[in-house]
Design a protein around this nucleic acid. Structure first.
Length: 874
RNA sequence: GCCGAAGUGGCGGAAUGGCAGACGCGACGGACUCAAAAUCCGUUGAGGGCAACCUCAUGGGGGUUCGAGUCCCCCCUUCGGCACCA
């Protein structure tokens, strides 16, 4: 540290060259450089496990290296940095790492467009963005930096994939998948937004492909139940996850297919319903155009050609309908009938375009009286309506006069022995009856589907599997990992997996039988990479394991995780899934990977999200060049609470710069004086102003400590700092400690204040607290001022200031007195005054008396330390 | 349509059921300056009063309470999420 002293703008102590000191105005650039270097050189943010200290894992969602970060991107890192720096000062062993979500399509698209290799493009972007983060002074443990596109990371993707394969959690199946015609790849359901690709916005189509899936549905219930214990997550995110999992309890029931005489055959259509209590009103059955019986019914129908054409049209239409959101409900009669297992009656089977092949059994019982869609369908096609539920408090509406379905619960009617039961009870009894007779059973359905992870692209983790003609699918042995992504590849942007065009990659011998075999050429969805990177950070350079469980469990789970709400159902649900997989592998000791989640709001410019294509990005480097990183950080943290969306304004940034300049102009000239200030000493001899400043200092410390964590009210914390500075300016003016508003090199007296030691002591205490409180927000300035105040070893070593509640407490309180709910006066009372004293003082107040004289006092409510409320009558 | 969040000065925002508008931006005034910028000090919800003060005011309407921006009910608006899930 000593070597930095020479960078000070003037010598310490009184008098400079020619005896006239100068006041250097705040110029952030050199300060920021100096401290960024110092942090790097001393490894200030590198950590190791230390069981003697509490650990704190602070993490921001890692970044996709898309080129340059704009202010909207970096807001998140600033939020995390405030928390990390605070926790460090509070004595925690803080893990605060950063890395790169470095596989993905933009790299590959850039390659196709510019002929640049994806790796080159990615690594160049990483280098640039890392520089940006360093220029912002984010306190990352860069020694743990990782990039998912490097073999020492993705090797463990492959290792984990094989473990999942061994446990049946990764499996292969042919299925209809979402296909993005622009990105030429498959998308998971979660990645299709309004029928369009989440990344490029292109309308998604469907394809039949052999795909790898991860059995996330095996954990569906656990993921759902676990949500209830995530008490430090935003309710909004939990709601989205619950909806996404979409658990619904119902009954799966068999409707036997009838022969020509209306007798049951051995075959049946299985339906799923959540309203088994309405089964006596099931007057027809609807099946999806994708249903397995459609082909057979078509073949056996009178006019197979028309049948098939209609079904095919529905299949196409259904896709389109999902994309546009609205398609008229249509259907046609299959000509077949099935038996209602409760009424024994035969009912017709129709194919309907609004029944989904992928949900439940792809078939439903239609109860037009009690389901609005079925009702409309029945009216359109003149199908019968049978009422089986009456409102709890009145008669059922007759079917003929119904104008809409009665979908609420009530009392069962016309339902044999179940008639007269409340529908909730009928539900249970009918479910039991179905089970007893072997025609159905309770089941749970999920909207959540298994996660399709195959991608027909180059720039991703190769799936470590080999297809052998005799042994089938064989995993690559662990000792042959990683399966390295071959460097030389054609990027035509056409066709299937680019890896399929690399013969030396594709052609392998089977690890089991040694025969000629073919390597899997699909790569993994990049969400695989991001589902466990937070564990890798805990042991980032382990060459023999994904991570050492002991190390991981020292740090994990992540104590504070922040990122965009757009990951509410993608990354955040996958990560919760992976945490459980690692748990079941015995590698982590917890269920939930992120204890606390903060979803930060976006930064808008001109009312819109910043984006390169809109040309409304604010470049952090440009702002740093003008105002410094500290001012930028302070502004972004001050403008609104972290969760909230904010609109960028230049004037707001100027205001924050002004505040820092105000701090600098006060502290910088005083620093040499305060560096030798006396200790607090006997406070009893202090002046009222000195004691008031001391009180404000301790109140501010308490306030910031409370605001910062776990509340993370960063904006109000900063306003607390501003109040303290305002108070200090008034104090300086009043006591002569310094002269606000003096100009550079103007007045030697301001720099050599002739004030009593108590004034110096009070000023010193306030300023040293201020500098430390400021340091999570404006770390460079804080370090610099701390050093100039005569301290060595960095500000983290100084620790977070502690408030003394006895000092912070006001010795007198001004309490409002209300009469009939309106403030009519104020009383000044000592802290801890008795109720009797408050009572008497309140009634004696002249302002109060004008409203109580001549009236009867009905009641006096005393809220200690708050107010006195008087109720009068007459 | 369903679920959720939110509506407070000119603007961003503050406020465990207890003095609404902290703090900042902007604006206005003053000091400093030959002048400007910068800086420092002040004023700044609306209306009334010479004044101490008074009245109104947190999207609208009701309610609970001594007391409501905050809790409850209804409505309006905005923003997010889900959206034929049977």
């Amino acid at each position: 540290m000593g070597r930095h002293a020479s960078t000070s703008t003037r010598p310490r102590g009184r008098g400079g060259i020619l005896g006239l000191p100068t006041v250097a105005d705040y110029s952030p650039q050199s300060i920021e450089n100096k401290w960024q270097q110092w942090w790097t050189e001393t490894g200030a943010f590198e950590v190791t496990e230390d069981p003697s200290r509490p650990s704190f894992y602070c993490l921001e969602m890692f970044a996709y290296p898309s080129g340059r970060a704009h202010v909207g991107h970096v807001r998140n890192y600033m939020i995390g940095d405030v928390v990390a720096r605070l926790k460090r000062m509070q004595g925690a062993n803080v893990l605060h790492p950063f890395g790169w979500d470095a596989f993905g399509l933009p790299a590959e698209n850039a390659a196709i467009k510019n002929g640049l290799h994806p790796e080159t493009w990615t690594l160049e972007n990483i280098a640039y963005m890392k520089g940006q983060l360093q220029r912002l002074g984010i306190s990352y443990a860069w020694g743990r930096e990782l990039a998912t596109c490097l073999p020492d990371y993705y090797q463990w993707n492959q290792w984990l994939f094989i473990r999942m394969f061994e446990r049946g959690l990764a499996y292969r199946r042919r299925s209809t998948v979402n296909w993005c015609p622009l990105d030429l790849t498959v998308l998971a359901n979660e990645q299709v937004i309004d029928g369009a690709c989440w990344r490029c916005g292109t309308q998604v189509t469907s394809r039949e492909l052999e795909q790898w899936f991860l059995r996330i549905t095996q954990y569906a219930d656990e993921l759902l139940d676990g949500a209830a214990r995530l008490t430090e997550w935003p309710e909004k995110v939990l709601t989205m996850q619950r909806n996404w999992i979409g658990r619904s309890e119902g009954v799966q029931a068999r409707f036997p297919i009838a022969d020509d005489e209306g007798r049951a055959t051995a075959e049946a259509i299985e339906i799923f319903t959540t309203r088994i209590d309405t089964i006596y009103g099931a007057t027809f059955v609807l099946i999806a155009p994708e249903h397995e019986q459609v082909e057979r019914f078509g073949a056996e129908s009178d006019d197979p050609t028309t049948f098939r054409r209609q079904a095919e049209r529905f299949r196409q239409q259904d896709r389109l309908g999902r994309m546009s959101g609205e398609v008229a409900r249509e259907g046609f009669d299959t000509g077949r009938r099935v038996l209602n297992p409760f009424t024994g009656e035969t009912v017709p089977v129709w194919v309907a375009n609004f029944v989904l092949g992928g949900y439940g059994t792809g078939a439903i019982m239609a109860v037009p009286a009690h389901d609005q869609r079925d009702f409309e369908f029945a009216r359109t096609h003149a199908l019968p309506v049978q009422v089986v539920v009456a409102p709890a408090d009145g008669p059922a509406v007759p079917a003929e006069s119904m104008t809409e379905a009665f979908t609420e619960h009530g009392v069962s009617v016309d339902s044999d022995e179940f008639s007269g039961l409340p529908t909730a009870e009928a539900w249970e009894r009918m479910a039991a009856s179905a089970a007893a007779r072997g025609v159905g059973q309770k089941t749970v359905q999920y909207r959540l589907k298994d996660w399709g992870v195959s991608r027909q692209r180059y720039w991703g983790t190769p799936i470590p599997m080999i297809h052998c003609p005799s042994c089938g699918v064989v995993p690559v042995p662990d000792d042959q990992l990683p399966v390295v992504l071959p460097r030389v590849v054609e990027f035509s942007g056409k066709g299937e997996s680019p890896l399929a065009l690399v013969p030396e990659f594709v052609n392998v011998s089977c690890p089991r039988c040694g025969g000629a075999a073919r390597r899997e050429t699909d790569t993994m969805d990049t969400f695989f990479d991001s589902s466990w990177y937070f564990y890798r950070f805990t042991d980032a350079h382990n060459r023999t394991q994904a991570f050492d469980p002991a190390r991981c469990n020292y740090w994990a789970p992540v104590d504070f995780y922040s990122g965009g709400v757009e990951h509410a159902i993608l990354h955040l649900i996958y990560s919760r899934f992976f945490a459980r997989v690692f748990r079941d592998l015995g590698m982590v000791a917890h269920d939930e990977p992120f204890t606390r989640l903060l979803t930060q709001g976006m930064v808008l410019k001109d009312g819109q999200v910043m984006s390169k294509s809109k040309g409304n990005v604010v470049d952090p480097d440009e702002m740093i060049a003008r105002y410094g990183a500290d001012a930028l950080r302070l502004y972004v943290m001050f403008v609104a609470p972290p969760e909230k969306e904010v609109e960028w304004t230049d004037s707001g940034l100027e205001g924050s710069f002004r505040f820092l300049t105000r701090v600098w102009r006060m502290v910088e000239p005083l620093a040499p004086v305060l560096g030798v200030a006396p200790a607090v000493g006997d406070v009893a001899t202090w002046s009222e102003a000195e004691r008031a400043l001391r009180r404000k200092t301790h109140q501010t410390v308490a306030r910031l400590t409370d605001d910062l964590y776990p509340r993370v009210h960063l904006n109000t914390a900063i306003s607390g700092l501003m109040e303290l500075v305002n108070e200090l300016y008034a104090f300086g003016d009043q006591t002569g400690l310094f002269k606000p508003g003096r100009r550079a090199a103007e007045d030697e007296a301001t720099l050599t204040p002739d004030v009593p030691p108590s004034t110096l002591a009070a000023g010193c205490e306030a300023i040293e607290a201020l500098v430390r409180l400021l340091s999570p927000f404006a770390p460079h300035m804080a370090e610099e001022l701390w050093e100039r105040l005569g301290h060595t070893g960095g500000i983290v070593a100084a620790g977070w200031p502690v408030s003394d509640p006895d000092v912070a407490r006001d010795d007198a309180l001004t309490l409002p007195v209300q009469v009939n709910g309106k403030v009519r006066g104020r009383i000044v009372v000592p802290v801890g005054a008795s109720d009797q004293v408050l009572h008497a003082a309140a009634l004696a107040d002249p302002g109060v008396r004008t409203h109580t004289d001549g009236k009867t006092i009905a009641k006096v409510i005393i809220a200690p330390g708050r107010l006195v409320s008087i109720v009068v009558k007459g």
